[in-house]
Amino acid sequence: MYNFDVETPGTVADAVAALGRDEAQALGGGQTLIPTLKQRLASPSVLVSLTGVAEMKGVCVGDDGQLCIGGATTHATVASEARAHYAGLAELASHIGDPAVRNRGTIGGSLANNDPSACYPAAALGSGATIVTNARSIAADDYFEGMFSTALDEGEIITEVRFPIPQAANYQKFLQPASRFALVGVFVAKYAEGVRVAVTGASNDGVFRWTEAETALASNFSADAVSGLALSGDDMISDLHGTGDYRAHLVGVMTKRAVAAAA
């Protein structure tokens, strides 16, 4: 690792100020960024650690009935504290990485990184969540802009994520056994207004909504409803773990499993 300064602000305002320094980079739980730095794939001059920002931690239900999760909240905390309100989300959080990773990794870090195989982007897009930053609120539909790319501006911090709580939801992850990332993961959530289906791990463009499946499930929320649907493997990730066609097939399988588990 190249050397860098570390700033440990205690408030969002101080964190934003610290990120104004030259070549500064926000550090969430570090479970992706620290290994990236070790490989010298990034070389910031300053790391601004967000884990000490108390106002960015915790889980609560807001006045509007939405589940609010602070950007610096760990996966382990979401797994335990969100369970009573949004079990499908807590279950997803409880299977990210491994226990030690879940004790450090944060929801804000995961969404800011937008790894094409990460779990949280599927939950955020599949729930129609709102990404709240120090500057504005961004709808999940406008937030994800492709592999490792988001609507966040330089120095912008995810302070909170707001999830509308669905009637039923489930996440099914086909595990890449070495990395424990999703080879394919599908998040299905049923709301009064309709069904949302978000897919991670599969597309070259990162997380996406499978709108055909959403339409089919809106009128018939059962695994059978998606039986006749197929996705093309042409734009899917193709690597030594699986071809694009293999991933496309898995999307259908995991969607059916998620619907069956949620229904």
Partner: peptide, 9 residues
């Protein structure tokens, strides 16, 4: 809490 000390500053 259990953490990986090689992945924390």
């Amino acid at each position: 809490e259990a953490v990986k000390s090689c992945t924390m500053l």
